[in-house]
């Protein structure tokens, strides 16, 4: 099974916005990235709390 990804990458576009409009799959990838960023932010907050604990002990 080959994936249609490489051909989609090749579709012509001049700006980032146009690229996303023509290659909808990358809109989905952007969305996955946003979710990862959110979880990473949460991880940072837990890290901060643990660091505080370490300072005390």
């Amino acid at each position: 099974m080959t994936l249609p990804l490489p051909k989609q990458l090749a579709r012509e576009s001049r700006t980032m916005y146009e690229f996303l409009e023509q290659n909808s799959l990358f809109v989905v990838l952007t969305i996955v990235l946003i979710i990862w960023a959110g979880l990473f932010f949460y991880l940072l907050r837990i890290d901060k709390r643990v660091a505080k604990l370490e300072d005390k002990s």
Partner: peptide
């Protein structure tokens, strides 16, 4: 709240396109 914000932001990006 984190999940709610993520649902809102991802939905909003999708809505743009």
């Amino acid at each position: 709240l984190l999940f709610c914000i993520l649902a809102t932001v991802t939905g909003s990006v999708w809505a743009q396109f």
